[in-house]
Design a protein around this nucleic acid. Structure first.
Lengths: 197, 197
DNA sequence: GTCTATAGGTGGATAGAC
DNA sequence: GTCTATCCACCTATAGAC
């Protein structure tokens, strides 16, 4: 059921995931689904949870990089890559106002594994002097906002750029931002301009 | 009709704007609405158009500022102000994937009056040396993305911050960004830290 | 311009039998 | 666990009277 719900979601977006459609695709009636998921929202939540698992795997590949700075930069690239390769997941995960935040309190996002990952990358950059000392959580929020702002405007079609143009903007824009965060040991421009995005 | 549709929207969001609800509230039948709006989408588009008009008025107040730099900074503050005072409008205007972009081509957003306003503010800052020379459209996109990223994550409850905390983050974050864009004549920190946000 | 009447379609959800 | 039957709310559309 969940697998088919995800197929539907990837093809048609959240609206495509209706109880009736999932029922038809899995050969049962719509009511049968309610034995496994409390309601449609719970079903969609299960779909989005898989998205987060995939996202986390993207981020973790950055740990293979040799320096703290390259790990941070690579993570930025992986963020973009996930968004472009899983735009439907991205939209549902980050662009939808979620009610969970209101039910489970304001900490769920800052406690999320994916956000902690970014905080850790920032922190280790501050520790070794490649970024100026700062509150890692605040800096992480700033960096996340920049990535998310670019990506979400692009995915919503509001920048009017081709994927190629957008990748260039994303790369330059992020480089500009971290330049503003730079510490005594500014990140090497060779890495910044490496077009791995 | 449009006025009541807007009331409904502001109270309950886009889902609250149903033909039946608007009909009941205006004392007519649902069918009557189709005389004035082709369908529900057109009605919602009219609602969102009013949002853009309001937004433009917010931005234009920045023109009263004396210097190009202060006009840009003030516009950033007005962006935040609009978002916090009209969160429903903001969400529908900027956080929703819109189909108009796909129908009307990739230029509609870059040609929009509100985006041109930002480009003009950037351009005059570059002209008088308070920002480093750059492609004003690209820099505008970068700045917009930062503002939008922060605002949309906050409105979606993903930062877990109170409004007070968020205003502080927004202000610092934006100051940091423009510091990275700084030209020979860097913006005075006194203006940057002025907590008009 | 608006009404009534009527239709066909989508969707979520409940109750109760098996 | 799954079924049928049933109800609800919604959007869209047509036709014709006032």
């Amino acid at each position: 059921m969940l697998a088919y719900a995800r197929d539907l979601f990837l093809e048609q977006g959240p609206e495509g995931v209706s109880m009736r459609a999932v029922a038809k695709g899995t050969g049962v009636t719509a009511m049968a689904i309610y034995r496994h998921f409390e309601n449609r929202r719970a079903l969609l939540q299960a779909v989005v949870d898989e998205g987060f698992a995939i996202f986390m795997r993207y981020l973790q590949r950055s740990l293979a990089e040799p320096t703290s700075w390259e790990r941070l930069w690579h993570a930025g690239g992986q963020y973009l890559r996930f968004a472009l390769e899983h735009p439907r997941d991205y939209a549902l995960m980050f662009m939808e106002p979620d009610e969970r935040a209101r039910r489970k309190g304001p900490r769920i996002w800052r406690d999320a594994a994916t956000f902690r990952f970014l905080v850790d990358r920032i922190r280790e950059c501050c520790d070794c002097g490649v970024l100026a000392p700062s509150d890692p959580e605040e800096t992480a929020a700033t960096v996340w906002a920049q990535c998310h702002g670019l990506v979400s405007l692009h995915l919503a079609g509001k920048l009017g750029l081709s994927e190629r143009e957008f990748r260039a903007l994303y790369s330059r824009s992020l480089a500009q931002m971290v330049a503003g965060l730079g510490g005594p040991e500014a990140p090497p421009s060779s890495v910044l301009l490496k077009s791995t995005m």
